[in-house]
């Protein structure tokens, strides 16, 4: 099949960073999987509505009330790094 993607761009979009070997291997895998997926093109779906959820979707509302909570302190303890009551991360720029 014709190559429809730049592996470099996908890796960047997905916030991954692959080694050259891994990139080459996954590129090959994706090509083969997309080749298989192309069989869907043989189906005429022009008058078919898409399904995003198998059962009917409807809005579910409730009062925005606190019923139970996990404390901020508990949440921060889960973080790889925190400073006082903030998450800590490397510089952005």
């Amino acid at each position: 099949m014709t190559k429809k993607f730049e592996i470099e761009k996908l890796v960047q979009l997905a916030r991954l960073s692959l080694s050259d070997d891994e990139k080459a291997q996954l590129e090959g895998d994706l090509l083969s999987i997309l080749g298989y997926i192309d069989k869907l093109e043989t189906l005429d779906t022009s008058n078919i509505e898409p399904t995003s959820q198998a059962l009917s979707v409807h809005n579910v509302f409730r009062e925005d009330e606190l019923t139970e909570k996990v404390s901020g302190e508990e949440c921060l303890q889960l973080a790889p790094a925190h400073y006082k009551d903030h998450y800590e991360a490397p510089k952005i720029i």
């Binding site: 916030r15 991954l16 960073s17 949440c75 790889p80 790094a81 998450y87 991360a89 490397p90 510089k91």
Partner: peptide, 23 residues
């Protein structure tokens, strides 16, 4: 790599940290 779970140690910038952590 910010709020929970594993974080890569070898990152200078936030963007590197994201991609290295996930890698």
């Amino acid at each position: 790599g910010v709020k929970y779970g594993y974080r890569s140690e070898r990152s200078e910038t936030l963007m590197d940290m994201y991609s290295n952590t996930r890698e």
